[in-house]
Simulated assay, not measured.
Amino acid sequence: MTTIDGYEVLGLGLYFEDLPVGRKFRTIGRTLTEADLVNFIGVTGMTEVLFSNVEFLQQESDIKQRVVPGAMVYSFAEGLLVHATMQHTGFAFLNMQLDVKGPTFAGDTIHVECEVVESRRSESRPNRGLVRSFNQVKKQDGSVVLTYNPLRMVKARAFA
Rank of each mutant, 00 (worst) to 15 (best):
Gly29Ser: 11
Val38Phe: 04
Leu37Ser: 01
Leu37Asp: 00
Arg23Val: 10
Val21Asp: 03
Val38Ser: 01
Phe40Ile: 05
Leu19Gln: 04
Gly11Trp: 04
Gly42Asp: 02
Leu19Ala: 01
Glu8Ser: 13
Asp5Asn: 15
Arg23Ala: 11
Leu14Lys: 13
Gly42Ile: 02
Gly11Ala: 05
Asp5Tyr: 15
Leu10Tyr: 12
Phe40Val: 00
Gly6Met: 03
Tyr15Val: 06
Thr31Phe: 09
Phe25Asn: 15
Leu10His: 11
Phe40His: 05
Gly6Glu: 02
Glu17Gln: 06
Glu34Ala: 11
Leu12Val: 09
Thr31Ser: 13
Leu14Trp: 07
Val21Cys: 02
Arg30Met: 14
Gly22Glu: 08
Gly6Trp: 03
Val21Lys: 15
Leu32Val: 12
Thr3Leu: 12
Arg23Phe: 05
Thr3Lys: 15
Leu19Lys: 08
Leu37Asn: 07
Phe40Asn: 02
Phe40Thr: 03
Val38Asn: 01
Val38Gln: 08
Glu8Ala: 14
Gly13Ser: 06
Ile4Asp: 04
Gly13Arg: 01
Phe25Thr: 14
Gly29Pro: 07
Asp18His: 09
Gly29Met: 10
Thr27Asp: 00
Leu10Asn: 10
Val21His: 05
Thr2Ile: 15
Lys24Ile: 12
Asp36Glu: 03
Ile41Asp: 00
Leu37Lys: 01
Asp36Cys: 01
Leu19Arg: 08
Leu10Met: 15
Val9Asp: 06
Tyr7Trp: 12
Phe40Tyr: 13
Leu32Ile: 12
Glu34Cys: 08
Gly11Thr: 06
Thr31Trp: 00
Glu17Val: 00
Asp5Phe: 14
Thr27Tyr: 02
Glu34Thr: 12
Leu19Met: 14
Leu32Arg: 06
Leu14Val: 08
Phe40Asp: 01
Thr2Met: 15
Leu14Asn: 01
Pro20Glu: 07
Leu19Asp: 00
Arg26Val: 02
Pro20Ala: 09
Arg26Gly: 12
Thr3Phe: 06
Leu37Gly: 00
Val9Pro: 01
Thr33Glu: 01
Thr33Val: 01
Leu37Trp: 01
Glu17Pro: 04
Asp5Gln: 13
Phe16His: 11
Arg26Thr: 07
Thr3His: 10
Ile4Pro: 04
Asp5Gly: 14
Arg30Gly: 07
Glu34Arg: 15
Ile41Gln: 00
Phe40Gln: 00
Asn39Ile: 09
Arg23Pro: 08
Gly13Pro: 02
Gly6Val: 06
Thr31Pro: 10
Phe25Asp: 13
Gly29Thr: 13
